[in-house]
Design a protein around this nucleic acid. Structure first.
Length: 677
DNA sequence: AATCCAGCAA
DNA sequence: CAGAGTGCTGGATT
């Protein structure tokens, strides 16, 4: 360690792990460098962690940074002497990276390399040979069996020879890939980070690289995708998750580009038309993963259009919300669609399984990732205050909750469902939610309430006289509700189920209240937060300069708190501060006349909840239901909440006594209660 | 393996 | 003719 170590911002471990002090004067440049060569692991406030991997190096080199440059900068920035074995690892990567290409020509795939030996070496592996049309390479080229492209990419990746998919779009033939008459309107200004993302993709002027761009929701991913389509200027296929997102892409295409409306094709369940003169005219098609991945029966029209999509050659395949793509059926689009290159867009390169790794070879390396915090500081994203509100369970609900766990009357499969419904519909939680809604409506904010539980979503929305959107709401109504929320001052709160998780654009929203979520899904948390990230000029700032609010309302003493912790973790890693507040700290909560203030309404709600859970079970297995229904009703527990008086008293005093000492382990807590009982 | 819910079909 | 209600497939999570 030299005497100037203090002035240097990073430590480099020989495992490739990098620790970075963000208080360094040149932190911004250092961060830019690190993001280019390493994967961000965790970026809270002060010390950021990054990891250099063979994939991150591949991406860096593909982006035009040389190995020696990387080493030189690392050495210059590092407080410690870097281990030789690690430098060796970097040099070795540099030797083989970026020299193998997968190319589409006249509908056929080829493996190519400037270095014949490298190609020969790769083609000597059995796994690779199996994917080739004829064994061995001739003249630095080997033809690939088009049905085996995915397998080949996977094999090459495993063997340590990542393939680059690049498209020299200006030099392609007009007959198979006609020119697309689309340019960005002159009024469109790309933001600096959008331009940076695009410059990674088009680092050579007339070559488009395949890869992934990670931008927070609200930072304008769509515009990056659209700009890429224009730049490539050939047929483009855009895939998203929902029909609503398809429509939003169409609208933004029209808003930002000069492409005539008739050259934009929508392909969803509700809206489809065959491509006219498909061979000779270029167009942009927007569709969903389900439409292309679905294996069930298809109608005549659908089959015909699907066939068109598969026959044509695409200059660019844009995969929005690319984190869903590794799913079994969705990934098939990567092989059934013939595209010259592929741009993946996402806000959260995260899944709870480990399939996210597959994207590196399915799509390509990560080309660009923006730092949320940085964008916030630069004013491109709203400043969000994240608050977790802990609500006590209401007595009656807590008793049911504990009984559901203990009781032999409740069939095992139903216990979890029942408990989840109980903590979600906890009246104290709903009171808090209503309070928050009223508070923010008064401030003139625009509020989204998220609930994965459909029963309470509808019930609560109706009681409050607000709109809700879940799967059963048809497309037209959805559009209407969304646009009213956008434009009308009379509609300031909407309720969304998990249909709203992905790719719904609601620029005006600045408050989220989450009353139920899907277990510990980090992706869901981040994407919901993303809904309110668009900067809000109209919203007043609170103390601390916050102009957006993210509330996660959870029930204390239940497993929900455990899930909430998991979800919270992700946002903390992204640099958000999470604050925990107890519900009784919210001012005058109990003095207000709220829907679930009265005991009667709470008891009625409980009845409804129990019924809704039981109904769900009844639909699934009628016989089982009647079988267990008898003992349950004969003990009278679910039907008559007042019945077990003694238990109620003891439980109530217990939970009261434990109130103050509560720390982190809700699961253990419930168990202790159970034992004590 | 099971649960829940969203999207597509017609 | 439309849109509502139905059945099926499949994704995400634990």
């Amino acid at each position: 360690m030299g005497h100037d170590a203090l002035a240097r911002p990073i430590w480099v471990c020989k495992t490739g792990r990098i620790l970075f002090e963000t208080l360094h004067p040149q932190a911004a440049q250092v961060a830019d460098f690190l993001i280019a060569v390493a994967e961000p692991v965790s970026r809270p406030q002060i010390i950021h962690e990054y990891q250099i991997t063979s994939l991150s190096l591949t991406a860096a080199i593909a982006n035009g940074i040389s190995v020696e440059q990387i080493i030189k900068i690392l050495v210059k920035l590092s407080k410690n002497a870097i281990d030789d074995s690690f430098l060796q690892f970097i040099r070795e990567k540099g030797r083989i990276t970026g020299k193998l290409h997968l190319v589409l020509r006249d509908g056929r795939h080829f493996l190519e390399s400037e270095e014949a030996t490298l190609l020969t070496h790769l083609c000597s592996h059995d796994e690779v040979v199996e994917c080739l049309v004829s064994s061995g390479a001739v003249d630095r080229t080997a033809e690939v069996d088009s049905t085996q492209v995915e397998k080949l990419k996977s094999a090459a990746h495993r063997l340590g020879f990542p393939l680059l998919q690049e498209y020299e779009f200006r030099r392609d033939r007009e007959d198979t890939n006609p020119h697309l008459p689309a340019v960005l309107r002159p009024s469109v200004n790309l933001r600096p980070y959008q331009q940076r993302a695009l410059s990674k993709m088009f680092s050579m002027d007339d070559v488009a690289k395949s890869g992934i761009v990670v931008l927070p929701c609200g930072a304008g991913k769509t515009l990056v995708g659209i700009a890429a389509c224009c730049r490539v200027g050939r047929r483009a296929l855009v895939l998203t998750t929902t029909a609503v997102a398809v429509d939003q892409w169409r609208r933004q295409l029209q808003l930002y580009t000069t492409l005539p409306p008739e050259d934009v094709y929508i392909f969803t369940a509700d809206q489809k038309r065959p491509i006219e003169d498909a061979e000779r005219r270029a167009c942009i098609v927007i569709s969903t993963y389900s439409m292309l991945g679905f294996t069930g029966r298809r109608g005549g029209d659908t089959a015909f259009i699907l066939d068109q999509l598969q026959q044509l050659e695409w200059g660019l395949l844009v995969v929005d919300e690319v984190q869903v793509m590794p799913a079994r059926t969705f990934r098939t689009v990567a092989t059934t669609i013939k595209s010259h290159c592929c741009l993946g867009l996402t806000a959260t390169l995260v899944r709870e399984d480990d399939l996210i790794q597959d994207l590196h070879w399915l799509i390509g390396p990560k080309l660009y990732e923006a730092n949320w915090q940085q964008l916030q500081e630069d004013g491109y994203l709203a400043r969000v205050r994240c608050i977790e509100v802990w609500c006590d369970m209401s007595e009656e609900f807590f008793i049911e909750y504990l009984q559901a766990q203990d009781s032999d009357d409740v069939p095992g499969s139903m216990r979890a469902t029942l408990q989840r419904s109980l903590w979600t519909c906890n009246p104290n939680k709903l009171k808090t939610c209503e309070f928050l809604i009223r508070h923010h409506e008064e401030r003139g904010d625009k509020i989204i309430v998220f609930s994965d539980n459909i029963f309470i979503l509808k019930e609560f929305a109706r009681k409050l006289g607000r709109y809700y959107i879940c799967g059963s709401v048809n497309l037209r109504e959805r559009m209407q509700i969304l646009s009213e929320f956008q434009e009308s001052a009379a509609c300031n709160t909407i309720f969304l189920s998990k249909v709203g998780d992905n790719a719904i654009d609601l620029p005006v929203a600045n408050v989220i209240v989450q009353i139920s979520s899907h277990y510990g899904s980090r992706r869901q948390e981040a994407q919901r937060l993303g809904r309110i990230l668009r900067p809000k000029p109209q919203a007043q700032c609170s103390a601390g300069g916050f102009n957006a609010f993210f509330y996660s309302v959870v029930s204390r003493d239940t497993q929900e708190l455990y899930h909430a912790n998991r979800r919270q973790q992700f946002l903390v890693e992204q640099g958000y501060n999470y604050q925990v507040v107890r519900d009784h700290r919210l001012s005058r909560l109990d003095q207000q006349n709220l829907i679930y203030s009265s005991k009667e309404s709470q008891l009625q709600l409980l009845k409804q909840v129990l019924e809704s859970v039981r109904r769900g079970e009844a639909e699934e297995a009628d016989e089982d239901f009647t079988g267990v229904a008898e003992p349950v009703t004969s003990t009278g527990k679910p039907a008559e909440p007042e019945a077990p008086t003694e238990e109620k008293v003891s439980l109530a005093s217990l939970s009261g006594g434990l109130d103050g000492s509560y720390v982190v382990a809700p699961v253990a807590r419930s168990k202790r209660l159970k034992v004590g009982n």
